[in-house]
Design a binder for these strands. Structure first.
Lengths: 210, 210, 210, 210
DNA sequence: GATGAATGAGAATTCATTCAT
DNA sequence: TATGAATGAATTCTCATTCAT
């Protein structure tokens, strides 16, 4: 096959992205290295030139994904101009704000993922994001909008429930069922954080059915 | 090897139980059919006489496990002598009541499981158990101990959070961390169900540190 | 491919023999499992049903070969009717005596072998055969035909020299060169063992050029 | 990486030396070209600029090694001031004479080598060195210290036995076992060459145990 | 019902070698 | 001279499944 030379970072990114997509589409275990390289049009050796094993690229994907999520969350959390509630909305709201191509946390987490990626990314997401969210909750306590004793543990529980219940299609819920669950989630979160009922309405915006 | 003839149901049950145990011990993907039959001392053909494929026996295991859990939950739920709170305690409490070898729901769900079984059983557990628990919540509303609008969805959210956060060692929490999370879980559940603070204390019994 | 079922020992022996031959023909490293199974006409899985790895079958081959050699040597050594000199002749002589299909030690050792098999079999042959030969030398000392102080070490040295110098075609000697070396070998062995000059003439029989 | 230009002979020698060392350390087959170039800090292409293949560099190494050995042996053999016995001692003696960093033949041959290098170098060593040694034996016959009919073949046999029996750790002998074998070797060599008993004592110098 | 030898389609990984720059 | 990204054939090994007995 014709040899096409690319800048290493470019080639590496190309492989990561393709693998990421295929892993999510067909699952990590069922997606062979063969599939990945055929999709890109490179040789087996090229794959192994950049990644020393299949688990190795999985790690790279998780790191990349988490990096993006955490970075965005930190940007929001550290913005001194925002109230705790505004930060919550920015991170958990389901409506797009600002520029188009920025993926939101909520959206990122709702990709149809498979088990391995699920476990690795979702769990890591909960673990890495909850301290950031907990800090926002602390800010909110200071601002008098939240009232809760153990912000970190509370956030972790709520996050986990939200993550796994509405993520992917693990549960096979219909759109209507998902909506109902999101509404309830909102109420539980408000109660758990001691927030005003309705203050997390941004999680369930009224909008036209997609 | 000597041919040992057994009653079909017995042989089938033997295979299911062994596979169940091995799947949980070493994981579904990593447990080969070979391992299962060697453990029992039976031939390959015998396995395929009873189950048409490996996924097939996985399904059988999940069905069996769920059946046991759901049956027990229904027994409790349908006991006319118990209050809603007592039923909750019976199903979610972490202390043993009654005979020794009966596995509780809470206990069953906390076995170190692997991904495949996890996904299949945990999710199915949430889906099948939540209507039963929701009914108990309705009973509790009638008895004035709970106050919540959407029992089913609320239960599902809480159940999911509890399930995934404290199950297995997905998150790698230490014992102390798990205890902290269980305490918070109790508070959130009470708030979400509109129950008296401390009424779900049975989830966190004071006991000697192991 | 048509499934041909054979008795396990038969199939196993078939694989060992084919592998043995191919390893010697093309070398252990260069002979792939694929080559072996294609030669026999069985599936890959069949090979791995009988041998857990490629090194595993190598071991089996060496064991088989050594077993045959050592067994024959022991039979000769333990024959009470033979003198030490006759035993030496039986084991080291290059002319066929008796039944046709019995491979002699000398002949067995002169097969064109490759490195791995060479190292493993030749060395093991020296180590396992030298005590047997040393015992014969002791018998010879008693009979007054040998005179040497350290039979075992002496035998090992002589055996090693003989083994590696005239074995296979490591050195690329011509037939004439080999003959010359064998003659000298005879003289050295006689001197080293303190035997009568010419007593090991059986190693170099006068015969028509092949 | 920064491109470091070196004089061709220097670069070539650098690669040969590194490959030589690594081949001996990890074995020819197990030492990849990658390992060699990483060790030097040079690119793949550079390796293939100097050597057309991996077997090619192996050949270069053997030639280099043999060259050194043969050259030294010739220097000794052609020294008109030395007796045959002194030459034997110079070449086969196990004690250091002269300057420190000069490797002796005996020492060179006892490096822990691997199969490929072993076969190629040891055999070639025997073949190239034996005529030189044979010439010394002829000189010794003239001087009345040796008495043997076929010097070349005799030397070849003795050399081969010595080489393979005590080389590397093919046989896995202990230090004590090796000492016993070297003593016997001395006796056999003396007998085979018709030399005075004890005249080859230099092969087994009495020295403090290490 | 039961056996276990046999199947074969993959899977991951290695590495000597090439070639555009 | 030198670089290093790219190649791809080859290799070992796995394991769910089949089928002759």
């Amino acid at each position: 096959m014709a040899r096409i030379v690319k800048a290493p970072e470019e080639r590496r990114a190309e492989i990561v992205e393709t693998a990421d997509r295929l892993f999510r589409e067909v699952g990590y275990a069922k997606c062979s290295v063969e599939m990945i390289i055929r999709e890109i049009g490179v040789a087996k050796g090229t794959f192994y030139y950049y990644f020393k094993s299949k688990p190795d690229i999985l790690e790279a994907i998780v790191e990349k994904t988490l990096g993006q999520i955490v970075e965005m969350a930190k940007d929001v959390a550290n913005d001194p101009a925002l109230t705790a509630m505004q930060k919550m909305e920015a991170l958990l709201g389901s409506s797009h704000i600002g520029d188009e191509d920025s993926l939101e946390v909520a959206e990122m987490l709702h990709l149809p993922e498979n088990r391995e990626l699920h476990e690795l990314t979702n769990i890591q997401t909960v673990l890495q994001l909850s301290p950031i969210l907990a800090e926002i909750v602390e800010q909110g306590i200071g601002e008098g909008v939240f009232e809760v004793e153990k912000p970190l543990e509370t956030i972790q529980f709520l996050f986990t429930g939200a993550q796994f219940l509405t993520d992917g299609d693990m549960f096979g819920f219909s759109e209507a069922e998902l909506r109902a669950r999101r509404l309830v989630m909102q109420a539980i979160i408000e109660k758990a954080l001691g927030a005003e009922p309705g203050s997390f309405q941004f999680m369930n915006p009224i909008r036209a059915v997609q």
